[in-house]
Design a protein around this nucleic acid. Structure first.
Lengths: 144, 144
DNA sequence: AGGTTTACTTGTGAATTGCAAGTGAATTTA
DNA sequence: TAAATTCACTTGCAATTCACAAGTAAACCT
């Protein structure tokens, strides 16, 4: 994948590039849903715990696609559906999400302790498992 | 530090907690400025490459303080100034920032290659250096 | 004492967000 | 095969947030 030019960015700092792509209230949660929950369709994203609005979801799907983080393909089994998948660029966000989860778990009173324990037990193994599960997920047929 | 209760959160997911604290266009850049550039006062933050507006900066300083990520103390040398410092919770965001920098550097055409190379060369050593520099920075007198 | 610096606050319009209610094509059901 | 339903959105609108410009009060410098 070609690197995106920095034409319209506020600055050339890599962190700024990340923030411009992911620095909002929904994008990272959507990537989490894809990575950990296997969400792939509009409807599945809507079912996320936090309750995103449909117009925002549509907008974020388009933005993430424009950034090359996700890609859409028609569902061969159901012409109404689009299946959204993480690209390699998207999957490579796993370490970012992982660090954010660990940080919050350390300082905030959050839930999902099994996940946190799994990460803490062996971070490398966890990341490998995420990638592996993703490979399988990308190939499985859509949920009826 | 006591863990913050999850009373008003959209969900109990640790990632959601992180996103609610840091998921905007400026917070992480401010933390970057503190961590890597040694920014400590209102004026120093204003000089960041990206150009934050004064009202947004004031708001974000208060939010980050409320979250326990930064803390403010009066400058003993200049009664007009407040010195903002990262708390341990704030410093522990270093791995998050690091992963975001590496991810962007990998897929986007960004600048600051020396930083990226330093991180890639030895991530652990880099993080240790950030912490160490921070210790010193927190003690130094304000820039005239 | 007068001017400057610092850290904000206060407007003001523009952009973004969230909610509710559509819409149209594809699929399932009767 | 006609009707109902599902799916992925779009549209309208009110409310919040944002960026930009200008102002303000306290502390400091001369």
């Amino acid at each position: 994948m070609a690197k995106r030019s920095s034409a319209k960015r506020r600055s050339g700092c890599p962190l700024n590039a990340s923030v411009e792509m992911l620095g909002d209230r929904w994008s990272l949660l959507m990537i989490r849903d894809m990575m950990l929950r296997g969400s792939r369709t509009f409807k599945e994203f809507l079912a996320s715990w936090e309750g995103i609005a449909t117009n925002i979801l549509a907008d974020r799907l388009r933005r993430l696609e424009a950034y090359g983080i996700i890609e859409a393909q028609p569902d061969p089994k159901d012409g109404r559906k689009l299946i959204y998948l993480l690209t390699p660029k998207g999957i490579d966000l796993a370490p970012v999400l992982t660090e954010m989860v660990l940080w919050a778990a350390r300082y905030e009173d959050t839930g999902n302790e099994p996940l946190v324990r799994e990460i803490l037990h062996d971070r490398r193994a966890f990341l490998a498992r995420v990638r592996q599960r993703w490979e399988q997920n990308a190939k499985r047929p859509a949920i009826s």
